[in-house]
């Protein structure tokens, strides 16, 4: 932390900074506080008060109990956990290996590989949701094209008398939900940046000590990368958890939906009457608790590990 007091006495600046931070934190916290307070009120008091009120209602546990018994949010929380974990592990694992290859090996395809990865950062999944859905709905589609284009289908039709059409849907599976989110190489840049800060003689020293590329990765690079690995794992876990559009279309049954989608579906169900606001607020807290706790506890590690300053 910088000690600006060293330079000069800047009371006015510090006072302004304090006001700014108080305002900023209020802006962030007030919606959460309102959600939290409302989540403690029973539906009846909420109606009587005519909506938003700042009185604690003492019914938080009742509302939570309703969430657990009357909705599928608990199961959907499990889905979120599974999908977010798969996404984080796939993304970090691949990006770590890719960045390792990019930084420590010379190769003809290095530039091409890099370009292939940059493109994935530019066009987010939500932008190509229509066609990604079609692919996940039938991952065999490219195979059908190939068979069509090469004339293999034509030949099979001649011989067997029917035209094969392969169909394999990954909709409503964890993998089908997770894989498209994971098909993104942002972390390659983070790891690449980190590897470039390692001493340039380190790989040479390892070679002289008799370590091959795999040994060097496992014994030296992996332990040194603990901070960025933990940070990116958490970051992508949270990112996948809060994803909405893709999980919304990739899973159609409530049993397979993620918690965030499930919560939004509960809100959808009763449009005409005054909504069960306290219950919804409790639900919002319920589905947000795990990622917020992770971010709050691991804030330092995440910021340090992503090393965003030097990009």
């Amino acid at each position: 932390m910088k000690d600006s007091g060293m330079i000069e006495n800047a009371r006015s600046v510090d006072r302004a900074a304090t006001i700014v931070l108080v305002a900023g934190m209020s802006f962030i916290l007030i919606p959460l506080a309102i959600a939290a307070v409302t989540a403690t009120q029973p539906y009846e008091t909420f109606i009587e008060a005519g909506g938003l009120s700042f009185a604690l209602g003492g019914h938080f546990l009742d509302n939570m109990e309703k969430i657990l018994s009357e909705t599928k949010l608990l199961r959907q929380l499990g889905n979120s956990l599974a999908v977010a974990t798969i996404v984080a592990v796939m993304k970090v694992g691949f990006c770590f290996l890719a960045a390792y290859a990019l930084v420590f090996f010379e190769g003809k395809f290095r530039r091409a590989l890099f370009a292939v990865m940059i493109a994935t950062v530019m066009l987010p999944l939500d932008l190509r949701v229509i066609t990604t859905y079609q692919i996940v709905a039938n991952v065999a589609m490219p195979l059908n094209w190939i068979l069509d284009a090469t004339g293999a289908n034509w030949a099979i039709e001649k011989v067997a008398g029917f035209r094969p059409y392969f169909r394999l849907s990954l909709l409503d599976t964890y993998f089908g939900t997770a894989a498209p989110i994971a098909a993104n190489c942002t972390a390659v840049f983070i790891f690449r940046q980190f590897f470039l800060t390692l001493p340039k003689d380190l790989p040479r020293a390892a070679i002289m000590d008799g370590a091959g590329p795999i040994r060097f990765m496992i014994d030296i690079v992996l332990p040194l990368s603990k901070t960025p690995i933990v940070a990116t794992l958490l970051f992508f876990f949270v990112g996948a958890w809060t994803n909405y559009l893709w999980p919304l279309v990739a899973a159609s049954t409530p049993d397979q939906q993620t918690a965030v989608v499930g919560l939004a579906r509960i809100a959808d169900s009763d449009i005409d009457e005054i909504p069960q606001v306290p219950l919804l607020m409790a639900g919002a807290l319920f589905v947000s608790f795990i990622p917020v706790a992770l971010i709050a506890v691991m804030q330092r590690q995440i910021v340090r590990g992503l090393n965003l300053s030097s990009r």
Binding site: K200, D201, R204, A205, M208, G212
Partner: peptide, 15 residues
Amino acid sequence: RERGCAMVFQDYALY
């Protein structure tokens, strides 16, 4: 690794 050399580096390159 098959040459039997060892090397001391400029920036030490300690792990």
